[in-house]
Design a protein around this nucleic acid. Sequence first.
DNA 1: CCCATATAATTAGGAACCTAACTATATCGG
DNA 2: CCGATATAGTTAGGTTCCTAATTATATGGG
Lengths: 175, 175
Amino acid sequence: MTNEHNIPNEYEAIPSLAQLKRQIERYDLDVDAQTVLVAARLMAAGTKLGHAAEVHFSKFGLSTGRYRLLADLEDNAGEELPSQLAEHLGVTRATVTGLIDILERDGLVSRRTSSVDGRQRSVVLTELGAEKLQDMAEEHFARMEAIVGLLSVEERSLFLDLLSKVTHGISSLTE
Amino acid sequence: MTNEHNIPNEYEAIPSLAQLKRQIERYDLDVDAQTVLVAARLMAAGTKLGHAAEVHFSKFGLSTGRYRLLADLEDNAGEELPSQLAEHLGVTRATVTGLIDILERDGLVSRRTSSVDGRQRSVVLTELGAEKLQDMAEEHFARMEAIVGLLSVEERSLFLDLLSKVTHGISSLTE
DNA sequence: CCCATATAATTAGGAACCTAACTATATCGG
DNA sequence: CCGATATAGTTAGGTTCCTAATTATATGGG
């Protein structure tokens, strides 16, 4: 085990309700500890899931971002502009440039200069890139399913609904 | 607006159910698109929340990690070992070293060599560090509450329960 | 007693994503 | 038609966290 000291005690998830209650009391705040706990746990879950995904994709020589780029490319007839990719993936164009650099180096995509607009350089999924997606598909989707596997069908749709509300809550904070 | 091209179209969250369905059909997989969508949306929500938190803390000259370190320190009588902090925060000791470096530079914590074990160098919350926590408390907790604000009390406790199951699902994948 | 081994913290270097500045190309108004 | 401005993509450099190697100190068996 490389980082066992990195795995939190499974009987005491972070942050604990007790810890939050102490903080709220210390500052004499008018907030509900349980409510704050929900937000904190969501953040923890997101971090954990993100890390797990990164580990998963690295086994195929990819990162989460590079996998998502390939998948989005395939979903758009195998060719897109970097700016479109940036919008679809929710990252900046600078980040897309970096993702493409590595994917191109590995032969999974190639760049093509547009004949219509000389500023544009569209990105094309290569045959090797399509094969990579094909190779990963089964395990990738099985893992995605496994994450939600402990939830019943009703719970899944409920969770999706709640998640959507929380996502809107986050949006209203960042605007 | 610095990165408006970075904000996904609000009428079409990523990834869309349609996109996942196309992928599943293309590879002829035996998975449920809705189920996969739940996992994908959770990952997106986590990323979004993490980013929002980073922006929030940066207004106080901190990062999420450095804030969490200070809070954990305060919750442990203002003094802890780096290894304890690493375990509590769920990061490596190397990361803790980096967090402490900056917090010490800014006068929010100080390092003290142990008289018991010469290898240990405990971290102490300074008065300035405690003041920083005090200054941030109200806004910080208000924001945490706002994230979950669109959920009713029942939904919050339900969400927490579902989140816990999903977190276990992630754990079982990474072991 | 002292050498092999374990442990605490740090350093060195890498990966992912960011913002801001830059280059090259396109377009619009006088 | 041509200079000002806008846009596409890239580059440069910063932040956060990681793994692996290193340094310093402690401990246990021959």
